[in-house]
Simulated scan of single mutants.
Amino acid sequence: MKQSQGPSAKFSEPVADYLEYLQRERGRSENTLRAYDVDLRNLGQFLHDHAGDPTLKLITVQMVRDWLAYLHESEISRTTLARRISAVKNFFAWALKHELVESDPALRLAAPKKERRLPHVLQPSQINRLLSEDEAPVEDDSKAGEQSTRKDNDVKSLAVACRDKVIAELLYASGLRISELVALDIADIDFERRTLRVLGKGNKERVVPFGKPAERVIIDWIRSHRKILATESAGDALLVGVRGSRLNVRQAREVIATALKSLGDTSASGPHALRHTVATHLLDGGADLRAVQEFLGHASLATTQLYTHVSVDRLRQSYRQAHPRA
């Protein structure tokens, strides 16, 4: 069967209305909207290619079940499958509420249980290496002129290196999501209290602290290096890319992925690993669970409780290694 280029307007137009509703009335983030769009387009494409491209009202329970069987045959991950089912169920619930369908064809769809994986957590020694401040090498006086020229030519690279230190320090110091980090403006920083004003998921604002090491690299970045990279298009953005505008999520992810890979002894691979790590370290240090929930901006305490399992696992491991009758 010939594949089309995409779902027709019969399906894509109500999906567009639904996404607009999520953005305007529910305050969903751009990342969430993109995920919903991809998942609903997947269903729309299937209906177009395999079910005769029905209008929304003519979509049946069997069509949706056939789509679900198609997903299973595609051997996608449990997480992706659960997300797609959730997106479709929420969409049809909205459509029913707004009388776009007479009955909900996705009502009885059951999502698979998500795999509950414990997050990768860096050890304190790994964090120290990741955030270590390398000392500048001592140069031979006879090569001073050559070194001066090299420094002039490499000033942009030094600025980028300083910015990357800010990224790593702030992700660990404040447990920010990567999207929250790149959205920070200089005005969001209170240096007197050493806090950040963060706009999190659902446009919920919170204030989180950061420590003296992060303060040092932020001040160094703002005073000496940011102006080397920033152009007028950066506005008040704290972090900027090499082209001078606000740093985006993809670029920031690459910075952390490269830094973690350079450690050579961890399977942690992305910025969320630092968020997991600071949460676990706080709980290991005796922080209150609800305080950590507020710190991370979790809507549900159950999400924060995942990190207690990491701490308990560490306790069990230490117990087996140290207790004479373990």
Rank of each mutant, 00 (worst) to 15 (best):
R26L: 04
G27C: 14
G27P: 05
G27D: 06
E30N: 12
E30S: 14
E30W: 05
N31E: 10
N31V: 03
L33E: 02
L33A: 01
R34D: 15
A35I: 02
Y36R: 01
D37G: 07
V38D: 04
D39V: 03
D39H: 09
D39A: 06
D39T: 01
L40G: 04
R41Y: 07
R41C: 03
N42M: 05
L43Y: 02
L43G: 01
L47M: 09
L47G: 12
H48Y: 11
D49T: 08
H50T: 10
A51I: 12
G52A: 11
D53F: 12
D53L: 07
D53N: 14
P54S: 08
T55Y: 10
K57G: 03
K57T: 05
I59T: 04
I59R: 07
V61M: 06
V61H: 10
M63V: 05
W67N: 10
W67H: 03
L68H: 04
L68S: 07
L68G: 02
A69V: 07
Y70G: 06
Y70M: 09
Y70W: 12
L71H: 02
E73H: 09
E75N: 15
I76Q: 08
I76V: 14
I76C: 10
I76L: 15
R78A: 15
T79P: 00
T79N: 15
T79V: 08
T80A: 13
T80W: 14
T80Q: 07
L81S: 13
L81V: 07
A82P: 14
A82E: 15
R83E: 04
R83H: 03
R83G: 06
I85P: 11
I85S: 11
I85D: 03
I85V: 13
S86Q: 08
A87T: 12
A87E: 01
V88Y: 11
V88Q: 13
N90F: 04
F91N: 08
F91G: 12
F92N: 12
L96I: 05
H98Y: 10
H98R: 10
E99M: 00
L100Q: 03
S103G: 06
P105Q: 08
P105A: 09
A106Q: 01
L107F: 11
R108F: 11
R108Y: 14
L109C: 09
L109S: 00
A110V: 12
A111N: 13
K113H: 14
K114R: 08
K114C: 05
E115K: 09
R116L: 05
R116T: 06
R116H: 12
R117E: 10
R117F: 08
L118A: 10
P119V: 05
P119Y: 11
H120Y: 07
V121D: 05
V121C: 10
V121P: 15
V121K: 13
V121T: 05
Q123N: 07
